[in-house]
């Protein structure tokens, strides 16, 4: 059970960071595993971002076979979506950097 609390505490540490609007973990097939966001938004994020991350890593590896995607960030008008992909899971953090700055 200790690993559960550790997972939770790490996630809450991230989500309590300035400007963070949501944290979610999903697997590479796009299903969410943990999320701090409402369910419908979680689904959208996990499904769409995991595909984008897959595409991004495929692009990276096509450009250079020895390379691989390690981090993906999407800057939008409202948010910055940051994705840390790993072999099994993706950590997705949605941040509003403007809000955090003030």
């Amino acid at each position: 059970m200790s690993s559960i609390t550790d997972v939770e505490s790490t996630l809450s540490r991230i989500s309590s960071h300035k400007g963070v609007k949501g944290v979610l973990i999903c697997n590479h097939s796009g299903s969410a595993i943990r999320s701090s966001l409402p369910s419908d938004i979680t689904e959208q994020y996990s499904a769409l971002i995991s595909q984008l991350a897959a595409k991004a890593s495929s692009v990276t590896r096509t450009l250079d076979a020895e390379d691989d995607l390690t981090f993906l960030r999407i800057r939008s008008k409202k948010h910055e979506i940051m994705v840390a992909p790993d072999k099994e899971f993706l950590l997705i953090v949605v941040q509003d950097p403007e809000m955090g700055g003030e």
């Binding site: 690993s3 790993d86 950590l91």
Partner: peptide, 25 residues
Amino acid sequence: NADLLNFLKKVAPGMLDELRSNLES
């Protein structure tokens, strides 16, 4: 959960760094 924890241990520090630098960027 052990998997998740391993994963988080790996990526969380980097993510926190990015979050921090993002605010200052």
